[in-house]
Design a binder for these strands. Structure first.
Lengths: 147, 147
DNA sequence: CAAGCACTTTACGTTAACGTAAACCTCGTC
DNA sequence: GACGAGGTTTACGTTAACGTAAAGTGCTTG
């Protein structure tokens, strides 16, 4: 699997097949509308593992994807610890022992259950919002006659 | 709309039409699997407004529903501030002026958009979970041949 | 009446997830 | 060679959402 690293260190801009593209912290931050601080924090929490070029962080596709997944998880209300749990086990999978793998399956089932409940919650909350919306429009309409 | 309050202050147990039932803080806490502290905190944050009987808090149906909605909102990752915003405006609706109502509609649209994005997030995350699950089972199967 | 619940208030503690500030490199460029 | 744009580390600050502990109230039950 180890591919000989290309010796051209610089000269990348646009024509790269995306698998080899790299990103600076600022780039990623703009892409996902977060601050660099957030990205560094996620690294510190073990969610990202960029390489270095001198002292600067270099992010690969893998890191970008991880960041995306992390932010998605956050939007769904997962804690960074929960997210890390899955992500790290995913990485440890190839050489994972059976116990670890079964544990992973458990966690996944758990997350899935969580998602299902969220779906139901969304359904219910939608209905309530629609309801409130209706009423508000009603009142507005009647107010309109007055104005 | 004002119904004369029934004079029997005690003697309630089971036969009440649920609209008149009241709850203690402990009851509610058990019902929703939260601590009394949480419920008091929500009151302090303006999400609940129980009446008092002496110094004890008395919760009505309305409070129970609010608590339910609040917890649902929390499961979806909303902050208490966001939840309060909607809940309070909902209460202020009947005599709401047009500006307030339009603001409410804005907020609702916002929440709705949020929910839609969450739906998409859930869809994607489900797929990824399914994927990881698949792989894990694969590895487990091959490991099974070995064991 | 002592004991035990269930409740109360007050107040300080804790955790997660960053924000913010200061002080320092390291380029390209004017 | 000063400087501005990006990057770095270190470290303290902040906010939300409660937890936890202490000390008191009020009822009812042995």
């Amino acid at each position: 699997m180890s591919r000989s690293s290309p010796q051209a260190p610089d000269a990348q801009t646009d024509t790269l097949p995306r698998q080899q593209r790299t990103y600076s912290i600022g780039e990623l931050a703009r892409m996902f509308e977060v601050t660099p601080r957030t990205i560094r924090f996620y690294e510190q929490e073990g969610l990202l593992a960029p390489t270095r070029q001198g002292q600067k962080r270099i992010y690969r596709e893998k890191d970008r994807v991880r960041l995306k997944l992390t932010l998605r998880g956050k939007r769904l209300g997962f804690s960074l610890a929960e997210i890390r749990e899955v992500v790290m086990m995913y990485d440890a999978m190839p050489d994972g022992n059976a116990r670890q793998l079964k544990r992973l399956l458990e966690i996944l089932a758990d997350k899935r259950a969580n998602l299902e409940r969220q779906l139901e919650d969304i359904r219910l909350m939608r209905m309530e919002i629609d309801d409130v919306d209706q009423r508000a429009r009603e009142v507005l309409r009647q107010l309109g006659d007055d104005v």
